[in-house]
Amino acid sequence: MIQFEHLTKTYNGINAVEDLSAEIRDGEIYGLLGPNGAGKSTTILMLTGLIEPTAGRCLVAGMDVTKNPVAVKERIGYMPEDVGFYANLSAEENLDYFARLYRMDRDVQKKKISDLLSLVGLDGVTKEVGGYSKGMRQRLGLAKALLNDPSVIVLDEPTANLDPQGVADYRRIITGIAGSGTTVFVSSHILAEVSRVCTRVGILARGRLIVQGSVQELAGRIGSCGEHRTVIRIESRSPMPVFQHPAITGTEYSNDRCSATVTATEDLRDVIADYLAVNGILIRQLSKDECSLEDTFLSFYQEAS
């Protein structure tokens, strides 16, 4: 549904985005991760036709965004990070104005706006948007992004200002929409949020896409805890013997030798379990440290740096 082909954007001789190539399939929730200044928002602005790439192109449903901006905008729903509305209009009036740009039937438009405001929890709020909190604006931004029943939704930091209820509502809405075949492209630096919602993530650093895949794939590719090593924690009911194996790079024991932390270049849990069984040691716990998305992200980012 979305394709980036060697996408590059240069500002004053510096590449904000450099040779970005990726493909996002129908119904996928794709998360673009990266620190501030990595090029996430620039990528999104090129995807939504608000800025033109210096080189390369973005395709939405096979259409070049630069060549067919209006046709592409008919199919996408976009919510920017700093979502802005007309402060002197109410939520309904703002949505009504934007809906007219989609040339929707008036009756359909009215019902759609009512349904969307109800969906994001802003039904019955009649005050002008100028008096909204950031979270309310973000909710309205989500409603606006869904106004035209888009086949692609582009969200820039969608949960940045939401309260816990807002985040829960956002997750429910996004997963529901993706389930009906809509492609969702999310940019965020809130890693936990991305890991919970996205089916695939790409990590952007200094304008370059350094890696992409599912959260599990990325964690598997890097090992555990962001380094090329596995950490295994063992607890036993009686003192353990000394572990010896070529893959082991270090072992730390407690004073009573009933707990140990083994660092190895590969997962040795089965080997350790067998060794302890042979020596008649009963195991209380045997676990490998799981790598969080944050660890994975930092690891890839440090590698790219």
Binding site: L50, P80, Y86, L101, Y102
Partner: peptide, 13 residues
């Protein structure tokens, strides 16, 4: 107010 970004993301020249 950042509304220009929102406005221009709609199908309008």
């Amino acid at each position: 107010s950042k509304s220009l970004k929102i406005l221009l993301s709609h199908p309008i020249y």
